[in-house]
Amino acid sequence: MDQNVNQETQRIPQPPQHRRRSRRRKNGGCAGTVVYVIAVLGISVILSLAAIFVANDVFAFVKDNAVKEVTVSENTDLISLAKQLDDEGVINYGTIFKLYVRIKGDNEGVLAGSYSLNPNMDYGQIIDTLVNASSTETMKITVPEGYSIAQIKQLLLDEHVCTEDALNEALNEYPFKHTFLQDELPAEEGWLEGYLFPDTYEIYKGNATVVDTINKMLNNFETKYDAEIQAGAESLGRSMHDIVTIASLVEREAQVDSERATIAGVIYNRLNNASQFPYLQVDASVLYGLGRTGGTLSEEDLKSDTPYNLYTKQGLPPGPICNPGHASLYAASHPEQHNYYYYVAMPDGTHLFANSYEEHEANIAKSNAAQAAAAAANTEGSSEGE
């Protein structure tokens, strides 16, 4: 009987093992889903918090109100300032600030100096303050007669009046509304050459006032181009553009005031006798075309292919080569009446004038001899001083 019982027992079917395994797999799948959901929710919360913090920094929804003085060194742009602003607590995320500036596409230079910034400013306000801030104190600058726009620009930069970006925009892009400039529009690089009147000006520092600074120079030109100069231009049948261009040549060529009208007369004599003298041959204009303001011209320079090479281009240059003062404007509109067609410089800045090429050659020989003697005297003086 025991044997039968054992046999019966052996016949009892056992529960399938795979059912238990299936139950465990189902439980594991539920747990995995829960973990996945929790992870997604956690990441979402973290990203949301990060987005809130970043947005708060960019737009300054809720930030501390505390003025901070930030000192900016020379030749600094907005992106370069990101770390400094972060370190000084004006912003919290320098990398985000850099990205913001790059997206806006206005990585402008910032004028050296101290700025009052506040963490409760949004990024746009911070940038506007850094780029467009102006000082409440005035300063005086003197623009010498005969300075080109390039020289005036460098003068303003050397005096830390504004940044180069702001100055370039004012000089090359701002459409000033002065009547005498209407024929020069549209605004482009160099279009104000000749019309920034040389003088001493009291101005404000800062990018926000750079247009006003240029405007003062233009207003001064309009005043200085007076009735006498206008009358002289009309009697000569010359436009303002012509007078300013000729005056700029006179300004750069004449070293002695008494010779301005004489040099202007030489220029007009050649212009009025173009068949015999097709080229003005003014060295200062050649130098301007080469981007220089002085120095000796080589044979290669005299063959340079620029519109300002008056050894190869006939008539006047395309426009002024500098910004002339009143004396040169007056000389250009009231040239001396004479028969000179040539002149050559002497060491003291005066010129020898001639009405024939033979006489001019003789004057060149005198000039060369005088230049050599002056050079020898300078060399001797330098040796004695050592």
Rank of each mutant, 00 (worst) to 15 (best):
Q7C: 00
T9H: 12
H18S: 14
R19S: 11
R23L: 06
G29N: 09
V34F: 14
S48Q: 02
A50I: 07
V58Q: 00
F59R: 06
N75H: 08
N75D: 13
L81N: 09
D86V: 00
E88C: 01
G89T: 07
F97W: 07
K104A: 09
E108C: 01
G113Q: 08
L117D: 01
D128M: 03
T129R: 14
S134H: 02
T138Y: 00
M139I: 05
Y147R: 04
A170C: 07
N172S: 12
N172I: 08
K177G: 08
H178L: 05
D183M: 02
L192H: 02
F197S: 06
Y204C: 03
Y204Q: 06
T209M: 06
T209E: 04
T213W: 01
N219I: 13
V244A: 14
E251L: 04
S258G: 06
S258R: 09
Y268I: 05
A274V: 10
D283K: 10
G289F: 03
L290S: 04
G291A: 12
R292P: 04
S298T: 15
L302R: 10
P307N: 09
Y308G: 02
G325I: 03
S328G: 06
Y330G: 00
Q337F: 01
M346S: 09
P347I: 14
T350A: 01
L352P: 00
A354N: 10
Y357T: 10
Y357L: 14
A369T: 14
A375D: 15
A377T: 12
T379G: 03
E386Q: 14
